[in-house]
Design a protein around this nucleic acid. Structure first.
Lengths: 341, 341
DNA sequence: CTGTTAGCGCATTCAC
DNA sequence: GTGAATGCGCTAACAG
């Protein structure tokens, strides 16, 4: 709880002006660092403002300026693993630029999303970032929004929008190239829900890399859920049906954790007998695994930062372009693919 | 990206009034559902507003009303595991009440926190929730804040503030009572960083429950890090030094995961030979474990919701009280403490 | 029922 | 250099 400082509302610029014995206009100039004000006067004003712990009313200011210095972050699902880094990156970028972020969680509900969108427009946000929960294209907010919109993670289904999404194809390719570089040739793939674009894109990248090396996947890719349990079960199948497999590319770190479990149960040494590579580079899972998990990092925080930057640019009138941009991912090598020295 | 709808700025209430052929005031009344306006007139106004896709300017409205319908969420560290549910709960509660949330991440930096606080006050938020990253008391924002402040998770160190924090003591007690109820008597404790109040409080609760049953911990509680690796290492020590241990109470789910690993390595069957209980009920870890992990859930989303409710109440002039309130936690039973039927 | 008037807090013309 | 007006978009008194 808190107490009001001076009995009533917050101090206003008139209060400051009165206390400093100057006019409202002069007080404004003095506090805003305009140079057509006498040094002595400025000092008096600043002091008065300080005494009253005056805080300029951003609303009043925004009303005049036409910009609010706020942006909306419209997320599809806060709980998701991928929101946080993106959100964090965006908040970081905006925070440095004196911009404040309205957080709205639509909870995967289109109605709620519409409601939040309306609220954001009512607040006259200068821009909006829409963060989806999957990398599958999502419905566009439409072209009628009066402020710049950038889609992050889940691209918009309208090519006239600007979308930033991780390059899952390259991720799959990177993973396989790394496995091949460490001498693996019998590579299987265990991944999550086949209805996810992420699963399909990573697989496509993986296949391209294999093909480029004159190889192909051992067995069919195994699809099911993005869970540890699925990783365990699938690995048991793979290692039984194809005992000569020397590497498994997993669609997520969770799956990879399950795979590691089963590998140990079946007496396969990782990485000597079997290399395992995950996806997402979720520190909690990758760093806690035994051995630690090599993984693909989608640079999500970076993605959030870039989305923010684009919104910034758009607000400044810079053309930010359109279309879906695939942002680079990176390989993080740990002990599950190369033996410790 | 987006296009401006009508070449210029967003439609204003005057635009609507003009188009409907009424005065500004009438338009306002019509749109705000005041009853002293003719039905026909209202229809015309609403229609005009619709045509122009008029969205009321919340700033202008707020300027008049003295309240903005916004609150600040000042977090210490977005990345942390505990922020999200709290944040999500708060956003949920506020969202239902037409309130929008400013998200500010201080990243554990006092300077940045001060900066964000200033920004929030400048935006004239109606209230603030401060979410800390640990349950240790944190410095108060002070009593000079002109709006209600509620501290969540990390309580304020000033008893004049209102703080909501999970009841770690009860959590420790619940865990032990459950183990005892399932027939365990040789119980060890492996937990995280001893400098965390959470570690100490949970331990204290555990000790109380043991004492009440005429028991005591097997060996000294083992403190180190909140990690899977520590859980593995510590479990090896415990199970070697005290082979007769029949239960391990872990300070976090991560630690518990490590303990499960070692238990399997050493041939202990869970839960038959050894019961393991975690803390936090992190679905990802608890649900993916083999067997699934019994754990203590701190009801963080609920905590976030309650914090929001308190802020609501305070805004409405209701006295929300002071002091640190310990919110109830709950036991979630899974296969690591009771055998599957 | 409807329209006119007066601000909310501030930045920005302009005169002085 | 400084101060008196003007208006951002809107709602709440009033008066017609």
């Amino acid at each position: 709880m808190a107490t009001n400082e001076s009995g009533g509302r917050a101090a206003t610029l008139s209060d400051v002006a009165r206390r400093a014995g100057v006019s409202l206009a002069t007080a404004s100039k003095a506090l805003n660092g305009r140079d057509d004000v006498a040094p002595a006067t400025r000092r008096r004003v600043v002091e008065a403002a300080d005494d009253l712990s005056f805080t300029p009313n951003a609303m009043a200011r925004g009303l005049l300026a036409g910009r609010t210095g706020t942006v909306g972050l419209l997320t599809g699902d806060l709980e998701g693993r991928f929101m946080i880094p993106i959100l964090s990156g965006a908040e970081d970028a905006f925070g440095a630029g004196q911009v404040n972020v309205f957080l709205c969680d639509a909870r995967g509900d289109a109605i709620r999303e519409q409601h939040h969108l309306k609220a954001l427009l009512s607040r006259r946000v200068d821009g909006i970032i829409v963060v989806g929960r999957q990398t599958d294209p999502r419905p566009s907010l439409g072209q009628e929004i009066p402020v710049p919109v950038v889609y992050a993670y889940a691209p918009s289904d309208d090519p006239r929008d600007l979308s930033l999404t991780p390059d899952n194809y390259s991720g799959g390719r990177l993973a396989i190239e790394h496995l091949i570089a460490t001498g693996r040739t019998r590579i299987a793939h265990i991944t999550g829900d086949p209805s996810y674009a992420a699963a399909q894109d990573r697989l496509a990248g993986a296949r391209a890399a294999l093909e480029a090396a004159g190889l192909s996947l051992v067995g069919e890719p195994m699809f099911s859920a993005w869970t540890e349990n699925w990783g365990r079960d699938a690995a048991a199948v793979v290692l039984t049906q194809h005992p000569d497999v020397d590497a498994i590319f997993c669609g997520s770190d969770q799956i990879a954790r399950g795979v590691l479990d089963t590998a140990r149960d079946l007496g396969r040494r990782v990485p000597e007998d079997l290399a395992v590579i995950g996806y997402d580079n979720w520190e909690l899972l990758a760093g806690g695994a035994r051995p630690e998990l090599t993984s693909i990092d989608a640079n999500l925080q970076q993605l959030g930062r870039q989305a923010a930057q684009r919104v910034f640019d758009a607000i400044d009138g810079i053309d930010i372009g359109t279309g879906t941009h695939q942002l680079p991912v990176r390989l993080v090598i740990r002990g599950s693919t190369i033996p410790r020295r």
